[in-house]
Simulated scan of single mutants.
Amino acid sequence: MVYTFMNYDDFNSKYNDILKIATCYSENFSFFTVRQIHKKDHSNEYFNFLDGFRNHEIPLGKIKTPRYTAGQQIHCFRINKITTALLMKPIDFSSWNAYDYPEDLAFYKNYIPWFRCISHEKMVLVNETNFSAFNELKKIGINFRLINNSNYI
């Protein structure tokens, strides 16, 4: 089953707690960039942020990534101390907007996405197959709504 919490602006105060749970209960994560990144459209911080992940990128191979349009490029990474520290740089979910930082942060357990931000919709989808993480999110006060008839996130 898939659940969502909408308008994550309401949960921005719990951003660090949510990320700690996501990184503890996942092996990998991803985000996307636009294929044609123009320096004039982004700050230097954006490019410095991307450079920090360069040595931790992994091949897409087995990972079941979300589908994107042709203009978007997905990047997958290992979770480790360095990448976790980098993920804590944005101050909230709203920062993942493709201008300040990349977009659509997602976390994977056994190569399957269980936590996926959809930045432009201001929503997060959570698959309960990562049961321990799902329960930890509930413990910190995240209220979920069931999405019917959804077989993937």
Score class of each variant (00 low, 15 high):
residue 59 P to D: 13
residue 68 Y to R: 05
residue 55 N to H: 12
residue 74 I to L: 12
residue 61 G to H: 10
residue 74 I to P: 02
residue 64 K to P: 01
residue 55 N to T: 08
residue 81 K to W: 05
residue 66 P to F: 04
residue 58 I to C: 04
residue 65 T to S: 07
residue 76 C to Q: 02
residue 49 F to E: 10
residue 53 F to W: 05
residue 63 I to M: 07
residue 79 I to F: 06
residue 61 G to W: 05
residue 57 E to P: 02
residue 50 L to C: 13
residue 55 N to Q: 11
residue 56 H to Q: 07
residue 66 P to V: 11
residue 67 R to W: 03
residue 73 Q to D: 03
residue 52 G to D: 06
residue 57 E to D: 03
residue 60 L to Q: 02
residue 67 R to V: 01
residue 75 H to Q: 08
residue 55 N to W: 04
residue 79 I to K: 02
residue 81 K to I: 08
residue 82 I to V: 15
residue 64 K to M: 14
residue 63 I to A: 02
residue 84 T to R: 13
residue 56 H to P: 00
residue 79 I to A: 11
residue 57 E to K: 12
residue 73 Q to H: 08
residue 71 G to V: 01
residue 53 F to E: 08
residue 61 G to Y: 10
residue 72 Q to N: 06
residue 59 P to F: 07
residue 56 H to I: 03
residue 71 G to I: 00
residue 49 F to R: 09
residue 77 F to T: 04
residue 72 Q to Y: 00
residue 59 P to W: 06
residue 68 Y to M: 01
residue 51 D to F: 11
residue 82 I to N: 13
residue 51 D to E: 15
residue 52 G to H: 07
residue 67 R to T: 04
residue 83 T to Y: 10
residue 49 F to S: 09
residue 74 I to F: 02
residue 63 I to H: 08
residue 83 T to N: 13
residue 60 L to E: 04
residue 56 H to S: 15
residue 83 T to L: 14
residue 70 A to C: 12
residue 47 F to L: 15
residue 57 E to F: 08
residue 51 D to T: 11
residue 62 K to Y: 12
residue 67 R to A: 03
residue 60 L to K: 05
residue 63 I to P: 01
residue 70 A to V: 13
residue 58 I to A: 03
residue 59 P to E: 15
residue 65 T to W: 00
residue 77 F to P: 04
residue 76 C to T: 13
residue 49 F to M: 09
residue 52 G to L: 09
residue 55 N to Y: 12
residue 68 Y to A: 00
residue 74 I to T: 12
residue 60 L to I: 10
residue 62 K to N: 13
residue 63 I to R: 06
residue 60 L to Y: 01
